[in-house]
Design a protein around this nucleic acid. Structure first.
Lengths: 250, 250
DNA sequence: CGCCGGTTTGACGCTCTTCAACGGTTGTGG
DNA sequence: CCACAACCGTTGAAGAGCGTCAAACCGGCG
């Protein structure tokens, strides 16, 4: 493993650690254990499937760079994105105990992943109970985001769904230093937004226009620019408490 | 704690163990550790809130009897049910590491709960790594069910949403011996189905009629009767693989 | 008996989908 | 350098699916 690769590993672990340390202390030994659990690096081109549904897995992926998504398809070709993932997300940590995934993980942009063998994760649960709880926590945060999406898809209007997505990503990208005050890079297309929001691409296009016309947010050229954050949050009924940003012993 | 209460605890632990043992071996010592973690019993009447969003928690609830649901409300009074829970579900195990819940847990029927203090759960993560992984697994199964609901709410039609719900509950209730070949007791009202399916009660009523007229399923008098299981699954595009019923070391 | 929660049905309207066409941009090959 | 394809975004018109409002019905229970 050359120096370049070590930098990528350090970057991935740093992003994950940053997110975990928002929620609880993490010792240097625990960080070292995480870094030591990484076996290799993988790159996936935009549009490719990274992990395929149903395939038995013996390792998990930690996203370092780019945008990935969990999604499922229906028989008629409709697609639904469950969660949009950003740097530092331990995307398919779920497969550690599930043994496989019941959904696909796709690259919405070019992405870089750290590979973590399940054996190494099991060792962490045996030797580092607190770190194990923190990894468990990170899957619970996924579940909490899933629940918020259930609320969004079940009960919110189309504009509100998009507004909510933009608000959530603003907060999550701020946590890892990838958002500016007024927005962030988001290298995906409108069809991806549609698949995340449970809408058609055509309707997403119209609702984006509405959000633009209302002076709330602009999505253009792979960038989200938030003009009126309070207004956007209001339209979305966005309350970040479901992201569990409080710091206490776990 | 009298003999009656011990029976209830045994029943609750047995239901949980049955579900976990579908997925992996569980030793007697592990079962004993689970039973020993229970501190008390609580009953909640139908319609009451059992766990309220945002409140700091120091214990988790394991459902023994009745039907409970996780749900969130929007400002205008709309409600969305995230997950319908049945006996043996460790409903708010999530609060162990989250510290609070970001949603409510309500009793759709009269329910009985086992109370498990978080301190006892922490001890399990220190002393019984494999059991800890199995509890972690049970929260991952919640997440997997959440994802299936996201797909349902985002992309399935109204009839399909209801059909899917009935299929899922048939399988989950079979696991704990609470379903017959052709259906099961489900003591909830149509408005609850609506909140779970992201629909209005009026439209649920119409779609139930459609399912009845098509000879697939009848929901009447707190009972779901499935007339044509294959047909119902087909309408729902129901594939139980997201419930991870395979048995292997975790 | 009369109330009450839940179910059922009808009429109407709005949100979102569908289908179709057009424009802009980028990359590719002749 | 231009022609062309491929992809993405944008817009219009028409229609389906689900929501809203309102009324009637039904069974259980005080």
């Amino acid at each position: 493993m050359d120096a370049d690769n070590r930098d990528i590993i350090d970057r991935g672990i740093d992003l994950l650690a940053r997110k975990l340390r928002i929620r609880d202390e993490l010792g240097d030994a625990e960080i070292a254990a995480l870094r030591g659990a990484v076996s290799s690096i993988r790159r996936v081109d935009a549009g490719r499937v990274s992990v395929r549904s149903g395939v038995p897995l013996t390792e998990s992926n930690l996203l370092v760079d780019g945008i990935a998504a969990r999604y499922k398809d229906l028989a008629d070709g409709q697609r639904q994105i469950m969660e949009v993932h950003v740097g530092g997300d331990f995307i398919d940590l779920h497969s550690f105990l599930l043994g496989r995934l019941e959904h696909n993980i796709g690259a919405l942009s070019d992405i870089t992943l750290l590979i973590v063998p399940h054996d190494n994760l099991r060792a962490i649960t045996e030797q580092h109970p607190h770190l194990a709880r923190m990894l468990w926590l990170s899957t619970l945060l996924d579940a909490a985001m899933h629940r918020e999406r259930i609320l969004t898809l079940g009960r919110r209007s189309a504009v509100s769904r998009l507004a909510h997505l933009f608000c959530e990503l603003q907060v999550r990208l701020e946590l890892i230093g990838l958002a500016e005050e007024d927005g962030y890079k988001l290298p995906i297309v409108q069809a991806d937004l549609a698949d995340a929001a449970g809408l058609t691409a055509v309707h997403v296009n119209r609702m984006l226009k509405e959000l633009r016309d209302r002076g709330l947010v602009t999505f253009r050229g792979s960038r989200v620019t938030i003009h009126d954050r309070a207004g956007l949050c209001a339209v979305a009924e966005f309350d970040p408490s479901y992201l569990f940003l409080d710091h206490h012993p776990r």
